[in-house]
């Protein structure tokens, strides 16, 4: 499910050895283009389709692709293409939103652990140990049990589930920078700790972590649609790719289009995010690592 594992974003062994060459450069541009279109669909879905994703037509249920309905209709006679287009917003929101939460929470804890005293560091690291002991989806299920289902709760659930990972990465990064010569020099010059953190540690820690997060977005997006697939994410009638697939499987013998295209949308999105993220990582490794 995960594309590049946030649980192991930079294994010390392989990180140094990463020499992934993105097969062909045009691939990266293509991925960036897809990503651009997805963002466009998020901001202005009406540019892609004139159909209302919620328009129910009891007489037009499960119709195959046609000129009127490019990708056919669903069990309520709604246009599958427009539901995919309008579903982009929810899916991207899940991916990016969850990672933003993980970054914020993990960043805070990670920096605190990296700069704090032994007690603080131990407390935070043991806490994240406990968090790491559960698979992402399991932790998300626990959060959903508490908070209930729904898009925002699914987003929070996945975000929270990823906090321990990012806390660890950020801490490692912080320790690295803290021990670097320029920070020690700044400290020797008499600069206060918070100042050093703000001026030197954060900016230097942010970039590699952000790049990792780009790749994490893909896996968060898949996790989010998985929750919707299990009926715990976005509630109907809002369009969302995972919940579309969940319903589609009941009608798979009558409507192949319904079970195919939302899946293509998820996979294509994750591929694009991953390819762009990897390319960014390669560039940054060439320069800073």
């Amino acid at each position: 499910m995960t594309v590049v594992t946030p649980a192991n974003p930079a294994p010390p062994v392989s990180a140094r050895r990463l020499r992934f060459r993105p097969g062909i450069r045009p691939g990266v541009y293509l991925a960036a283009l897809v990503l651009f279109l997805l963002v466009l669909a998020t901001v202005a879905p009406h540019l892609f389709t004139g159909q209302d994703p919620l328009a129910v037509d009891s007489a037009q249920t499960l119709r195959p692709p046609s000129a009127e309905h490019l990708l056919g209709t669903d069990e309520n006679g709604r246009d599958v293409f427009s539901r995919i287009v309008f579903g982009t917003r929810t899916s991207l929101l899940l991916g990016f939103g969850a990672i933003a939460i993980a970054l914020a929470g993990g960043g805070l804890l990670g920096v605190a652990a990296g700069l704090g005293n032994r007690f603080v560091e131990n407390l935070i690291m043991r806490f994240s140990d406990i968090g790491l002991a559960f698979p992402e989806l399991l932790l998300a299920l626990v959060v959903i049990t508490v908070a209930g289902s729904g898009t925002s709760n699914a987003l929070i659930a996945i975000g929270v589930a990823n906090i321990p990972n990012y806390a660890r990465v950020v801490r490692a990064q912080t320790l690295l920078i803290r021990r670097s010569s320029y920070v020690e020099a700044a400290h020797a010059l008499g600069l206060s700790v918070p100042r050093v953190v703000l001026r030197h540690v954060l900016p230097n820690a942010v970039k590699p972590v952000l790049i990792l997060a780009t790749i994490g977005v893909g896996s968060a997006l898949v996790a989010g649609s998985a929750l919707s697939f299990l009926g715990l994410g976005t509630p109907p009638p809002e369009p969302e790719w995972g919940s579309m697939l969940s319903t589609a499987r009941d009608f798979i013998s009558r409507a192949w289009w319904y079970g195919l295209f939302p899946g293509v949308a998820i996979t294509l999105t994750v591929i694009s995010v991953t390819v762009v993220g990897r390319a960014l990582r390669l560039r940054s490794e060439g320069r800073t690592w």
């Binding site: 697939l245 899946g263 991953t274 390819v275």
Partner: peptide, 13 residues
């Protein structure tokens, strides 16, 4: 890349 990007529930379907 393609397989790792495919959600398992869709792959299952």
């Amino acid at each position: 890349l393609v397989i790792a990007s495919t959600p398992s529930f869709w792959l299952g379907i």
